[in-house]
Design a protein around this nucleic acid. Structure first.
Length: 562
RNA sequence: UGCCUCGUGGUGUAAUGGUAGCACGAGAGAUUCUGGAUCUCUUUGCCAAGGUUCGAGUCCUUGCGAGGCAGCCA
C-alpha cells in the first residue's frame, strides 16, 4: 500500500500562487475559507479547507475563516459554532498556526464589514456607478433578460445618495428598492447587467441584531471583505466563474489603494453514493431520515468524525483527489482506501463476533480458562500484545461455518478443520439445530497439540477464524453503516430520497473480547477479519457502542458472488 | 438561447512543445495463524477533424460533448 503523500500536491492554483511569490507580486500569501453559516460543513468543504489552509501552510501565509453572513434569513449561530468546531478539528496539529482569526479570537464575519461596505456603496453612487432602483424583483428580472435599462438608471447622484440613506434608515419596506451597479445592460454576461448590490430586509441578524435593514449581496460583500481582510488569493468554486468580471469591476471601480485580491475557481468535490448539497443534507436531517447533522452516514465533517474517520485521513484524501476545473465525480472507494491505508497502520486489533454462533469444545476441560497471547498490531510491534481468555464454550461468526460449503470455502464445515486465531485448530464433529432447523450450536474437538506459539503449532490448515470466549465475552451494540444511497449518483435525476439505502444502518449485539472494555474514543480498532470501528459518543462504560467506519477489503465476498 | 468554463484508461489525476506516468478500482499470481496487509504482474486513455511545428495531450481553427450562470441566495 502506498504511503500517504507527505509532499503537498501540485496543481494549477498552487502554480499561480508560487508564480506570484516568485515575481514579487505578493510577499505574504493570505487565503480565506468563507462558509455561509446556514448548515454544517461536509467533505466538500474539507477540500476547500485543505486547499486554503494547505496553501497558507506551504507558503508561510495565513488563512482567515470568514462567515459569509449577508443573508440573515437563512443563517444561525448554531452553524457558526459547528463550523468553527469542524475547522479546528480538521486543521489542529497541521495548519492551526496559519489560522487567522480576528483580534478577539473569533472568526471573521462579512458582517464585520457592513459599515465600510456601505461606505463603498456611497462611493460608487458618488462616482455615478450605482443607483437606487424602484423596480420590483420581477420587473428587474424581466429587464435584465431583455437587456433593457431601468427607468431609474439616470437619477441624479444627489437623489441616489438621499434614497440610499433613507433605505438604510428604514424608510422603505422589504423589496421596495435596491441599490444597483450601473454597468452595462447589454453585456453578454448577465452579472454585468446592473446587478443588485443591496436589498432591503427588515430582519434580525445573528451578529448585528437590528443595526441594519439593508444587506449587501454576495457579489458586493465578498470582494470587499476579501480586500478589507487583505486576502491575496480568493479561491472559490466553479459556479462563481461568471461572477469574476463583476468581482473585478467592483474592486477596480472603487478607489482602493491596497493590493487587490485575485479570484480563482476550482471544481467542487462530488462523491459517489452520497449527496453534497447543503439543501439536500438539511432535508435529510429535517425529515428525520437520518439521526441529525452528525449522523455517521452523512458526508458531513461531524458525521464522518462520529463514524470514526480521522482528520488526517480527510487531509490525505484531499491531497489525493487534486484540484482542477473539471467537475468530476470521485468514487467513494478513494475515501475508503484512505481510511484503510491509515487505519491498517494505526488500529489496534481485537477479537469480536458480530453474529455469534456457539461452539463447544467437547474435549476441552469444563471450567478451565487459558490466557492466550494476542498481537495488538502486526504493522506496529511497539503496540505490544495482550491476553485473551480461552475456554470450552466459545462464539464464532455465523458466516464462518457452512453446513454445505460452497467451492473454495475454507472456513469451518462438518468434519472440517479451522484454526482459532491465537488458539487451537478445531474440528467440527456435530451440528445442533433447533426445531426450525436453524443451527444453534457446533460441537467440536480441539487439537490440543496445535496451540499457537506451542512446540507443535506449525501444522497448517487453510482457514483461521476469530472467536470470543462465551463466559468472558462483553456485550456491545455495534452499528454497521453502509452507503446512504443505492445508486452512484443520487443527484442525477428523480427524487434523490427515493434512492436511499434501506440497509444503510444495521444494529447488532456483538460479543467482544474483554480488553474492549476500556476502549478509548480517540483510538481506532480493527475487529479482526471484519472492519474498523470507533467508539460512538453514545457509548457508556457498561454499554459499549461501536460504529463501523469501514469494512476490511473482502476478496472472499467478491469470490463468493461468482 | 446567450455567456463562461472544461474534455487524458472504469474513476481521480500528472505532463508546462520532446518516450503518456501515478493512484483508486478491476483481473492474475506469490505469501499469510486476519480470504486483511504486503509483493509481483496484467488490462484499459489524450473527444473528433483540420492547421502550425523537425516534433502537439500541450499552441490555433472548427465541430462534438459535458458542466455552470441567467435570485433582491451564497
Amino acid at each position: 500500500m502506498t504511503p500517504p503523500p507527505n509532499d503537498p500536491p501540485s496543481d494549477f492554483i498552487r502554480d499561480i500562487v508560487a508564480e506570484d511569490v516568485r515575481s514579487g507580486k505578493h510577499t505574504k500569501i493570505h487565503t480565506r475559507f468563507p462558509p455561509e453559516p446556514n448548515g454544517y460543513l461536509h467533505i466538500g468543504h474539507t477540500k476547500a479547507i485543505c486547499l486554503n489552509f494547505g496553501i497558507a501552510r506551504e507558503f508561510g501565509g495565513l488563512c482567515n475563516v470568514r462567515m459569509d453572513d449577508t443573508n440573515p434569513e437563512k443563517e444561525e449561530t448554531e452553524y457558526v459554532d459547528s463550523i468553527m468546531a469542524d475547522v479546528h478539528w480538521l486543521i489542529d496539529g497541521w495548519a492551526d498556526k496559519n489560522l487567522c482569526l480576528n483580534s478577539g479570537g473569533a472568526p471573521f464575519f462579512a458582517s464585520d464589514c457592513f459599515q465600510p461596505i456601505y461606505g463603498f456603496a456611497v462611493q460608487l453612487v458618488r462616482r455615478g456607478k450605482a443607483y437606487v432602483c424602484d423596480m420590483s424583483a420581477e420587473q428587474t428580472d424581466e429587464y435584465r433578460r431583455v437587456g433593457k435599462e431601468s427607468s431609474f438608471r439616470d437619477r441624479s447622484i444627489e437623489e441616489n445618495l438621499d434614497l440610499l440613506a433613507r433605505m438604510k434608515a428604514g424608510e422603505f419596506p422589504d423589496g421596495a428598492r435596491t441599490l444597483r451597479a450601473k454597468i452595462d445592460m447589454q453585456s453578454p454576461n448577465m452579472w454585468l447587467r446592473d446587478p443588485v448590490l443591496y436589498r432591503i430586509r427588515h430582519a434580525q441578524h445573528h451578529q448585528t441584531g437590528d443595526a441594519w435593514c439593508i444587506y449587501p449581496l454576495y457579489d458586493f460583500a465578498h470582494c470587499l471583505s476579501d480586500y478589507l481582510e487583505g486576502i491575496t488569493h480568493s479561491l472559490c468554486t466553479l459556479e462563481f466563474e461568471v461572477h469574476r468580471p463583476l468581482y473585478e469591476w467592483i474592486l477596480q471601480t472603487l478607489d482602493l489603494p491596497n493590493e487587490l485580491p485575485q479570484q480563482i475557481e476550482f471544481a467542487r468535490l462530488n462523491l459517489t453514493y452520497t449527496v453534497m448539497s447543503k439543501r439536500k443534507l438539511k432535508q435529510l436531517v429535517d425529515d428525520g431520515l437520518v439521526g441529525g447533522w452528525d449522523d455517521p452516514r452523512l458526508p458531513t465533517i461531524s458525521g464522518m468524525r462520529r463514524r470514526g474517520v480521522t482528520a488526517s485521513v480527510l487531509r490525505d484524501f484531499s491531497y489525493r483527489i487534486g484540484i482542477t476545473k473539471y467537475p468530476s465525480l470521485t468514487e467513494v472507494d478513494a475515501l475508503e482506501h484512505a481510511i484503510r491505508a491509515e487505519f491498517n497502520q494505526s488500529a489496534l486489533r481485537r477479537l469480536a463476533v458480530l453474529r455469534p454462533l456457539k461452539v463447544t469444545l467437547t474435549n476441552y476441560p469444563e471450567g478451565k480458562t487459558e490466557e492466550l497471547d494476542a498481537i495488538n498490531n502486526p504493522e506496529d510491534h511497539s503496540a505490544g500484545s495482550r491476553k485473551v481468555p480461552f475456554s470450552r464454550e466459545l462464539y464464532i461468526e455465523e458466516a464462518d461455518f457452512m453446513e454445505t460449503p460452497v467451492p473454495k470455502y475454507y472456513r469451518l464445515k462438518p468434519g472440517g478443520e479451522v484454526r482459532l486465531k491465537y488458539g487451537y485448530i478445531i474440528k467440527c464433529d456435530e451440528v445442533l439445530k433447533d426445531s426450525l432447523g436453524k443451527i444453534v450450536e457446533l460441537r467440536c474437538t480441539a487439537d490440543l497439540e496445535s496451540k499457537s506459539g506451542g512446540p507443535n503449532s506449525n501444522r497448517k490448515v487453510k482457514g483461521t477464524i476469530h472467536w470470543v470466549s462465551a463466559a468472558h465475552a462483553l456485550e456491545a451494540e455495534v452499528r454497521l453503516y453502509d452507503r446512504l444511497f443505492t445508486v452512484p449518483d443520487p443527484d442525477a435525476g428523480g427524487d434523490f430520497k427515493s434512492f436511499l439505502n434501506p440497509h444503510s444502518l444495521e444494529i447488532v449485539r456483538a460479543k467482544c473480547e474483554p480488553s474492549l472494555g476500556d476502549a478509548k474514543p480517540e483510538l481506532r480498532y480493527q475487529f479482526e477479519r471484519l472492519a474498523y470501528f470507533a467508539l460512538d459518543p453514545d457509548s457508556q462504560p457498561n454499554e459499549l457502542v461501536f460504529n463501523r467506519t469501514v469494512t476490511l477489503r473482502d476478496t472472499w465476498a467478491k469470490e463468493a458472488k461468482k
